[in-house]
């Protein structure tokens, strides 16, 4: 049905689509080098000072009256984010993998129920889960802090790990596991020596995804974070609500680079041996 003009039109649309995805990000990249302290939208000259200030290096910015140093709060937010993401990823990777194994390799009565329940935290709007957890923690009398954020993140991260590992298990033949058990290996030995090496890329991919999503989460964290437990997205959200400041550009680029590196590793792991 498509002659050459139609495919040319499609091609143009496709290129435009990619441009739409990346041009806004490219703008942040460009503005992150703008040396104008007062009006960040007006180009003044090239500088690396915004990056230097985030990394705690000496800059020319301190000379300007309009510049307020916020590196300490930023570093605290980064630390909080990394702590939360690390713990939440470890716990949810274990739980998500265990559940995926149970669903894929066992037949039991509540199987469908578990499958449905595990997908639910992922598809329901963040705000609903966020306020449900807020009411829950407050009615338990818990102080909000990093521990409540970690608990909250585990709920939906487990779902993501579950889905990724399940996909891996579904694409895997069971004959090696059956052979191992026929040859007298215990379920544990079969798991350790046969199943685990095969699903390891899936587990690693799920863990990376969980880590990124945890680092990225704003809405749920917003409701269950305490006064001193602001994570990086909360820190950025706070700044943006008070008015845009130029160091956001450099911070955004560093964060994007990090996410893209982790994501690229994850996608590569997933594509390997599949």
């Amino acid at each position: 049905m498509n002659g050459p003009p139609a495919s040319r039109w499609l091609g143009a649309w496709g290129v435009g689509f990619l441009a739409l995805l990346y041009v806004p990000i490219a703008l942040i990249f460009a503005y992150s080098f703008n040396s104008n302290v007062v009006n960040m939208m007006a180009w003044e000259g090239f500088t690396l000072d915004w990056y230097r200030s985030i990394l705690g290096l000496p800059t020319q910015l301190a000379k300007s009256d309009n510049y307020v140093q916020s590196t300490a709060t930023l570093l605290a937010a980064v630390r909080n984010s990394v702590v939360v993401a690390t713990f939440a990823t470890l716990v949810s990777t274990a739980i998500g993998t265990a559940t995926a194994l149970a669903i894929a390799r066992h037949r039991f009565r509540l199987r469908r129920l578990y499958q449905g329940l595990l997908v639910l935290p992922m598809v329901m709007p963040d705000i609903v889960l966020g306020i449900a957890l807020l009411i829950f923690f407050v009615s338990l009398g818990l102080d909000l802090g990093l521990h409540t954020i970690i608990a909250g993140h585990c709920v939906f991260l487990s779902s993501y790990v579950f889905v990724v590992v399940s996909t891996r298990l579904a694409g895997m033949a069971t004959d090696l596991e059956e052979a191992s058990s026929d040859l007298g290996a215990s379920p544990w030995v079969t798991f350790r020596r046969v199943t685990l090496p095969q699903i390891a890329p899936g587990i690693a991919g799920g863990a990376l995804l969980a880590f990124i999503i945890s680092m990225d989460d704003l809405v749920i964290t917003y409701f269950i974070a305490g006064v001193d437990s602001a994570t990086l997205p909360l820190f950025i959200y706070g700044i943006l609500r008070r008015g845009i400041k130029p160091e956001i550009n450099a911070l955004a680029m560093l964060l994007l680079t990090f996410s893209f590196l982790v994501a690229a590793t994850g996608l590569w792991l997933r594509s390997r041996r599949q």
């Binding site: 995805l21 990346y22 806004p24 990000i25 703008l27 942040i28 503005y31 939208m41 990124i212 680092m215 990225d216 704003l218 997205p233 950025i236 959200y237 943006l240 845009i244 956001i248 955004a252 964060l255 994007l256 996410s259 893209f260 982790v262 994501a263």
Partner: peptide, 15 residues
């Protein structure tokens, strides 16, 4: 871009 921080993607359009 799905893996990029949500708030940064929104910020890009604020720019």
């Amino acid at each position: 871009p799905f893996f990029a921080n949500l708030i940064i993607r929104v910020y890009a359009w604020m720019l």
